[in-house]
Design a protein around this nucleic acid. Structure first.
Ligand code: MN
Ligand code: MN
Ligand code: ZN
Ligand code: ZN
Lengths: 141, 141
DNA sequence: TTAGTCAAGGAGAAAAATTATCCTTTACTT
DNA sequence: AAGTAAAGGATAATTTTTCTCCTTGACTAA
């Protein structure tokens, strides 16, 4: 059995309420699909759960992604060559993207480490590194 | 005076022909604007050069960005929170993005170095690190 | 429990972004 | 200078995202 702290990660209604969002069935389903599929697009989320909610609107998913991003529950991933993907926010980590199949694997490592080592350990042929750091520039502070 | 190798970077007609693209005035203007503005959006390119070509079509810019990306002349940047930007392909480097004003500064450093040091030297308040590496996954090879 | 209230959902329009079509123009080749 | 294939322009069509307006329902607190 898992501990309470492990299980609480999957109690999405509570997670939503803690972020001042109502725990609707649609929202909970979106989070469950994200938890199950990992890094997923808007369209894929829609396809996965419209069976459960025959009247589901695409706008509902867009609106929820914005709301949940604002609350830090989900994160938007802009990947070169692919449509935006979304994932449930967790520990800071990076991604390894296959340019062919689009699969995305989480990789956890300190940026100070060598990236070649990380990719090599996954049997991954490293072709491109995209890194951008963001914050507030000198002029804007 | 610069050397030939420095100047050749600005001979866009030649650069285009080397990549099997015709050196049209529109294309040359797009590259000149990109060289001048740095990291620029489609819309901004359009605004900057439509004065020179009264009949310029937005589709022309889109088509050219795709063609020039395929040839490795330009690179598309997907930045969290902003519209896509484009830049002329040069040495591999990373970016420092201001979440407030959207300014983008090139930063050249080995990923193995500490990122905090880089941002600090720019007076930049580091808030987020986005890094993704791409290539071909083990399964796809 | 049961109302009341405000957030959220659904339907559809609208807006924004991107791509496609089709014909004309033009850069490059010979 | 002529021929050809690529590129541009105009426009339509898609695709993606956002908005409006009304209805529904989750949460609150009696
Ligand atoms: Mn991830
Ligand atoms: Mn750059
Ligand atoms: Zn793959
Ligand atoms: Zn700034």
């Amino acid at each position: 059995m898992g501990t309470a702290s492990e299980l609480i990660m999957y109690d999405y209604p509570t997670l939503l309420r803690e972020h001042h969002l109502k725990a609707t069935p649609q929202r909970t389903a979106i989070l469950q699909v994200m938890a199950h599929e990992g890094h997923i697009s808007i369209e894929m989320i829609y396809e996965k759960i419209k069976g459960l909610f025959p009247s589901l609107s695409l706008a509902t998913i867009y609106k929820n992604m914005i709301a949940m991003q604002e609350q830090g529950i989900v994160k938007e991933l802009k990947i070169a060559g692919f449509k935006n993907r979304y994932e449930i926010q967790k520990q800071p980590h990076h991604h390894m993207v296959c340019q062919k199949c689009g699969s995305i694997v989480d990789v956890e490592f300190d940026v100070a480490q060598a990236l070649e080592g990380v990719s090599k350990s996954h049997g991954f042929e490293l072709k491109q590194i995209d890194l951008s750091i963001s914050g507030i520039c000198d002029k804007c502070r």
